[in-house]
């Protein structure tokens, strides 16, 4: 049984249709990359999966998975000017889903937050104010928070935006390492090369929607056309 199965899903805002007939499945332990042009509805799809916006129609079924086991990295987080929040507080807030009814974080959760800060290389920044970090540093903080929340599935909306090339490489390695440990990954990316390198499945959002394994994508018409435009040799 697939972990997440989406059937005939239509996404949109306030029942204004954006994209319909989206169907795909995500198996446990797979690595799904969502690609497609700007404005093709990738972020909207991810938000619909997370139940942040209502689907216009269709079904999303989750098997043995609750929202508390999902880590999420938004494409944009508009934090207000002057919001007083330290890096440590933000990363720790990713453990919220693990707490259940418990009001405070356990020692294990604090350790998890510390480990994830170490993993993202932001341990020295832990007492800094989030608003005073650079864009790339902020991105790492939010990634560390998503890692704290992810028990089974990690949803990433353009995770390497704003990271320098080395940090981006490291980021991909961290994600693929997690995937090898059994974490299911769903990632939106414009970096088609990385997508082909790491992903097991590809969902292409465009005028026609393609879903299949990486090999099927490379050999499909949609895939060949998109790859040629992107100048990638497959």
């Amino acid at each position: 049984m697939a972990l997440i199965s989406v059937e005939g899903l239509a996404t949109g805002y306030e029942s204004r249709l954006l994209k319909d007939d989206i169907s795909f499945t995500v198996e446990e332990g797979s690595y799904l990359c969502i690609v497609g042009e700007n404005g093709s509805g990738k972020t909207t799809l991810m938000k619909t999966l997370l139940n942040l916006i209502e689907p216009v129609s269709g079904q999303i079924r989750m098997n043995g998975l609750t929202h508390k086991e999902i880590g999420y990295l938004p494409q944009q987080t508009d934090v207000q000017r002057d919001f007083p929040a330290s890096v440590k507080e933000i990363v720790l807030s990713g453990c919220q889903g693990r707490c259940g009814m418990r009001p405070f974080y356990s020692r294990a959760e604090k350790k998890l937050a510390a480990d994830n800060m170490e993993r993202m290389g932001i341990t020295e920044l832990k007492d800094k104010c989030y608003r005073e970090l650079s864009g790339g540093q902020q991105q790492r903080v939010l990634l560390a928070r998503a890692l704290c929340a992810a028990k089974k599935v990690l949803l990433l909306d353009e995770p390497v935006t704003g990271l320098d090339p080395r940090a981006a490489m490291e980021m991909y390695e961290v994600i693929s390492g997690l995937n090898r440990e059994g974490m299911t990954i769903i990632m939106i990316s414009h970096d088609i090369e990385a997508a082909l390198k790491y992903a097991t499945h590809i969902l292409h959002m465009g005028s026609n929607i393609f879903f299949g394994t990486r090999e099927e994508y490379v050999n499909s018409d949609t895939g060949r056309f998109f790859l040629r435009e992107g100048g990638v040799q497959a």
Binding site: N51, T66, H67, K68, Y72, P74, A85, Q96, Y105, L155
Partner: peptide
Amino acid sequence: NRIFAVTFDESFAKAAG
């Protein structure tokens, strides 16, 4: 802790269940 999570980033908090 929950009030902080909701105040800082409501959509993340909601996504996290």
